[in-house]
Simulated scan of single mutants.
Amino acid sequence: MEHVQRFTFDRSRMPERLDRFLAEALPELSRSQLKRLIDEGRVTLNNAAVKASAKLKGGEEIAITLPEPVPTETLSQDIPLTVLYEDSQLIVIDKPAGMVVHPAPGHSQGTLVNALLYHCQDLSGIGGELRPGIVHRLDKDTSGVMVATKTDEAHQHLAQQFKDHSINRRYVALVHGLLPSTKGTVDKPIGRHPTQRKKMSTGSRNGRQAVTHWKVLQVYEEDRLSLVELRLETGRTHQIRVHLADMLHPVLADPVYGGNRIKTLKDPELRRLATSLDRQALHARLLGFIHPVSGEYLDSSSAVPADMQSIIDYLQNKYSAASAV
């Protein structure tokens, strides 16, 4: 049975292309899937067929008709997964650093979706395909807890929770510098960087609201590093990394937003450990939400992986020894 989803483009928003709005509103659909639906006339703007490049200015009614699920063309692959929770509606996994979430040019295999297609034999269809529903993402080199859905019902329920900012998302990060207080909030819009298209920025003209709450867990004063817990209200691309960099406290070893800050570490062993990390020191440690069927709160947590934990352990041992002298 076909399914119709409807959206209203809020008048308070900045003008935006239709395809970009739909990519945000329907994160479970890839850009190529959205393009195909638009080209097939399955997307209407105020009840009329429309092009992907149509400009939304405010108040438009958008409808997208999703067809009966069909087998996906994406390859299923027997890739090991660490499953934290699973039932007939959803699956929660501990994503390792280095794994891309969704197939894309240059990453057609070895992704989380490829792995889930092999692991999940009870998919009922998401967005017109028999595939897992991706309701949020983690960057390739960010590790930690993620949820994917198996049914349209579960997908829509969880997607609404993300939209309502009611999901409990907790991260831990090692960051450069000593933060100005023990806790705080960054409330700055994030959008595409005006000149560097692979980066996000708080200086974008078309930024969307982004709110990150932070709390200092540990300070390593001599090495000018801090261990920080972060809680997301919104989930913009690279949000934590952009907000921390904007504070001049980039995530340790962040190859995009951290510059060459590793070189400023004076401790040679610490510098070696940070260099060998080969990714940003950021981990999604907890994800909590209301189960779409039972209505009960469910959360899953993940221990900091060994590569990042080795740096924390080194710092803890170093500062414990110093305080004992």
Rank of each mutant, 00 (worst) to 15 (best):
Q89C: 15
S226Q: 07
R137W: 02
H165C: 03
R13S: 02
L277N: 07
P255Y: 05
S301G: 13
A322L: 14
A159K: 14
A148D: 02
I240T: 00
L232F: 05
K198M: 09
M99D: 06
S166K: 09
T44M: 00
L26P: 01
G133P: 11
N260E: 14
K266V: 13
T65N: 00
L287F: 15
S310K: 15
S323A: 15
D10Q: 13
K266T: 15
Q196G: 01
L138C: 08
A303H: 10
S201G: 04
G110V: 12
L252N: 04
F289Y: 15
M200V: 04
P189Y: 06
V256F: 07
T185P: 00
T202N: 06
M99L: 11
L112P: 11
Q280G: 09
S53Y: 02
T111M: 05
L179R: 06
S76Y: 06
L116C: 03
S276G: 08
H176I: 05
D78M: 01
K199V: 01
D152F: 10
P80V: 09
G125L: 12
L26I: 12
L178G: 03
S276N: 15
S323V: 13
Q280S: 09
P105E: 02
V135E: 00
Q218T: 11
A63M: 07
D313W: 14
A322V: 15
S30H: 04
P15G: 09
L29Y: 05
E40R: 11
L270W: 04
A321S: 12
E68D: 14
I167G: 03
M200I: 04
L84R: 14
M200T: 02
V70A: 14
Y85L: 10
S12T: 12
C120W: 02
Q309N: 11
E16S: 10
K318F: 13
H155S: 05
P69W: 13
G295A: 09
L282T: 09
A49H: 04
N260Y: 13
I290P: 05
R241H: 01
A284R: 14
Y220T: 08
H291E: 09
L227E: 02
